[in-house]
Design a protein around this nucleic acid. Structure first.
Length: 274
DNA sequence: CCCCTATCCTGAGGGC
DNA sequence: TGCCCTCAGGATAGGG
């Protein structure tokens, strides 16, 4: 599923091809993917605008438009946002096509439809309650590991659930939460308030490292995730625990335990993680 | 306020 | 071979 590394890869892929391009033709095949404004106003409000920036905040993709508004895309579980030739056959579950001229178009596809599309100024979207408040960006130089670790330690929830809380740290999802816990040697179901400050800081540093490594590998493509051109990433093959329940731990050889934390499938090594 | 659970949705995979 | 059941989970609404 698209988490921070996958979304970052897509943004880097799309940026050169989208900057300065004009949204010439908007074709909203499934209006329900647009959550703001009313889908009936979407096309008129978008058509003819020019893309001035392409960025990421947490798992959200922001296409800045001339005039100050933004087209915001969240990929949910199975969403893809790709720049393609118009001649490429349309895949099932393509919900939005935006023609850019030169026979190219931006396509949003999302079989499971957990994704969504928003259009408006950031203030307007915040006001409408369709853009959540997001926490720290793990890749930013200002990622305050000490401060965030002490915040994390205030919670009585499972440490993994806190990592998944987008209001504390933005962009971490189920895959990289498990990976960060493994690398830090922390059981994902351990209450956050029972982690020492140094170990909580280690957890956040490991999270940043695993996210950076996954970006270098262009994201985890075991299911629907594809980059900005529709190609697979190689990060799944480098994961140490996610998707490996029952297999031997790469460190100690004990079978990895598959469990459930906060309603999410979770894999960890009961020997290496305390 | 905090935290948990149900919900949305499709496709894959297992059992029979 | 085919049907049906379960499971996967990001974000959010609602309940305890």
């Amino acid at each position: 599923m698209p988490e921070l590394p996958e979304v970052e890869t897509i943004v880097r892929d799309l940026r050169p091809g989208l900057l300065g391009r004009r949204l010439e033709r908007v074709d909203l095949l499934r209006p329900s993917v647009v959550r703001f404004p009313e889908a009936s106003r979407f096309r008129a409000r978008l058509e003819g605008r020019t893309i001035t920036s392409v960025s990421r905040r947490g798992k959200f993709i922001h296409l800045g438009l001339e005039g100050g508004e933004e087209l915001v895309v969240h990929l949910g579980m199975t969403g893809t946002l790709t720049l393609e030739r118009e001649s490429e056959p349309l895949r099932l579950h393509t919900h939005l096509r935006i023609g850019l001229g030169r026979s190219e178009e931006l396509r949003f596809r999302d079989p499971r439809r957990f994704g969504r599309v928003l259009l408006g100024s950031s203030g307007e979207l915040q006001l409408a309650g369709v853009l959540p408040r997001l926490g720290a960006e793990p890749l930013e130089p200002g990622f305050a590991v000490q401060e965030l670790a002490s915040q994390l330690r205030r919670s009585r929830r499972a440490v993994k659930s806190v990592l998944l809380d987008q209001a504390l740290v933005a962009g971490c999802g189920n895959i990289y939460a498990d990976e960060a816990c493994f690398r830090a040697g922390i059981r994902p179901d351990r209450r956050a308030c029972r982690i020492s400050q140094p170990r909580a800081e280690r957890l956040l540093r490991e999270l940043r490292l695993v996210l950076e490594d996954a970006i270098r590998r262009r994201g985890s493509s075991f299911s629907d995730y594809r980059d900005g051109f529709g190609a697979r990433g190689e990060a799944y093959e480098a994961l140490l625990v996610y998707g490996r329940g029952g297999q031997p731990c790469v460190v100690c050889g004990a079978p990895l335990r598959q469990s459930r934390v906060g309603g999410r499938g979770t894999v960890f090594c009961a020997r290496c993680q305390r």
